[in-house]
Simulated scan of single mutants.
Amino acid sequence: MVWERKFGAEFSGTKNYAVGQFVADLTSLVQGGAEFIGGGIWAFGGSAAFTVFSGGAGVVAVPAINASGLAISGHGTGVFTSAWGNLGDGYSYDSGKSVNNMDEFFDTDFGFDFKTNTSKTKKRVDGQNVYKVGNKNLKEYGLKNGDQIYLDGLHKDHLEVFNSNGRFQKVLNLDGSINVEKTAKGMGRVLK
């Protein structure tokens, strides 16, 4: 399992987030290429020019110039190959996924955080177990200690979220984004 902190986890998996990842990777390709070329010029062209134009007086500085140029070029190579690899992975923004049960949800990237920070209660709704957020808040998803969640029993593609008093809060897609349409429809509901 890859451990990764994401800025604005509620946006992760959305189309805009995927576009941002793509643009960042394209920018990294350009940056890596520029560092590779610039570092190579600095290492080989810069040291030769420095030695020629200084009449040989700069020979002492040549190893330092070569080393720093090669370091920049090496960093550029790493940035470029990392970005190239990310482009090959693709970018997912499908929030229409579904799971059969909470155990299956816990095996997803988004669900993994919930597995260790929630506990099953005795409550059931639409055939689904209700889970309670534990002592460690899930702030990145807008959840606090005592909040209650369960997998929607009909569609199995989103989580219903209620506060500790059973008042409806929101609907989260299985990628962590807020489902605005279903949240608006759920206002006023109570979990008993």
Rank of each mutant, 00 (worst) to 15 (best):
L174I: 11
K139L: 10
N16C: 06
N145Y: 12
S12Y: 09
F105P: 01
F22D: 01
G186N: 12
S164V: 13
K182Q: 15
N173A: 11
G58E: 01
F168N: 06
K15Y: 09
A49K: 10
M187Y: 08
N135A: 12
A184E: 15
A48T: 11
T14I: 00
A61M: 11
E104P: 01
N66M: 14
T121K: 08
V130K: 05
S177C: 12
G69P: 01
R167N: 15
T81H: 07
E4C: 09
E160L: 09
I178S: 05
D152I: 03
S119C: 06
A67M: 11
G32W: 02
G58S: 08
L87R: 06
K139Q: 13
F11C: 05
Y150S: 03
T183A: 13
G33F: 00
E35G: 04
G188F: 10
F162N: 03
L159H: 02
K192L: 11
K123C: 02
I72Y: 05
I72R: 02
K15T: 00
R124A: 10
H155T: 15
S73D: 03
S95W: 05
H155R: 13
N129E: 10
D89Q: 14
Q148S: 07
A18W: 00
Q31C: 10
D157Y: 04
W42Y: 09
E160F: 08
W3N: 13
N179R: 07
F53R: 10
G39F: 01
A57Q: 14
G142P: 05
K132P: 00
G20Q: 04
L151S: 01
T27V: 14
G176S: 09
L154Y: 15
E160Y: 08
F106V: 03
F44T: 06
M102Y: 02
V133P: 01
E4H: 07
R5F: 11
A64S: 13
L172T: 03
A71V: 13
K144Q: 13
N135W: 07
V59T: 12
V59P: 00
D89P: 01
G40D: 03
D113H: 10
F112W: 11
N173E: 10
K115P: 03
L87M: 15
G111S: 09
S164K: 15
T14N: 02
F112I: 13
G40M: 10
A67H: 05
N16E: 12
G55T: 04
D109R: 12
R189N: 15
F50E: 06
L26R: 11
F105Y: 09
V99I: 06
A24I: 11
Q21A: 12
S164Y: 10
G40Q: 04
Y93N: 00
L151V: 06
S12I: 01
K139H: 12
N66Y: 11
N145F: 10
F7R: 12
V79T: 15
K123N: 09
V99N: 02
G46E: 02
Y131E: 01
L159W: 01
S12N: 06
D107R: 14
G58T: 00
K136P: 08
K123E: 14
G176A: 08
V130C: 06
K144D: 14
D103L: 06
A43V: 02
K182A: 15
A9K: 12
A24N: 14
V59W: 07
T27I: 14
S92H: 03
G69T: 05
G69M: 03
